[in-house]
Amino acid sequence: MKQLRIAAMGVLVAIFSASLAADLLSPHPYGEQYRDAVNAAPSRAFPMGTDDMGRDRLSRLLHACRVSLLLAPAAALVATTLAGLLGGAAGYLGGTADRVFLRLSDLFLSLPWLFLFLSVRSLLPLNAAPAVSAVATFLLLGVLGWAGPARVARACACGLRQSDFVMQAKANGRSPMRLLLVEIVRNLRPVLAAQFWLAIPVFVLAEANLGLLGLGVSEPLPSLGGLLRELENYQAVVSQPWMVAPAIILIGVTGCLHLVLGWEEIRR
């Protein structure tokens, strides 16, 4: 277990530092099209080959990791924080607050939020940098992604609300806000942590789907989601198996994060 954890840690450090140092490590600019070498196989010039516009896959992968692996966890943090507060409050307060919460989360889960992404993109200035729209996209994913995890948090908070230690805290005259934060949300942390790890790949993929609609991270900036979209073309994957690298990275990072932090959780 210990070795596994150290190995996972090593993988994470490697991937994150590689993506932070994307500019240094990339053999080519991520957007540069080598139009005479499209869909090229790996070679010394292009260690992971090129895509259908002749762009170096390795450079794009490094930059995609930087965009997605920094922004998706940030979005997941936003979503789970909101989930903890809203779900925790609903479960803890019960009654009307809980009913309003359930309605609201139903609404959030069922509404087609796409229109919001659409309007956000059209509200951004046309000449906004791709990085700005990437941050906006993930931020919005985070803000909109609270409902699912919040349901889970609420269910747990409902249980906590009846618990002896919450009763005891009330008998101590604690203020409702402190109660929520210290007694409820603190005890939701393992649940929220699980939701957090689940949310990261979900957000990366959500960004990929938004990208299908042209709403995600905009060209020529690459994102993991954008690279994953290429896997749709299964024939191309068969003939260029190195295309699956982004998927491996995503699974690897989620898995490793889980190992490293899951262990932390047990120890504490």
Binding site: L118, S119, R121, S122, L126, A128, A129, P130, S218, E219
Partner: peptide, 10 residues
């Protein structure tokens, strides 16, 4: 050149 993809409606 900045490329902006918009939904057809907008």
């Amino acid at each position: 050149l900045n490329v902006v993809t918009l939904d057809f409606g907008s």
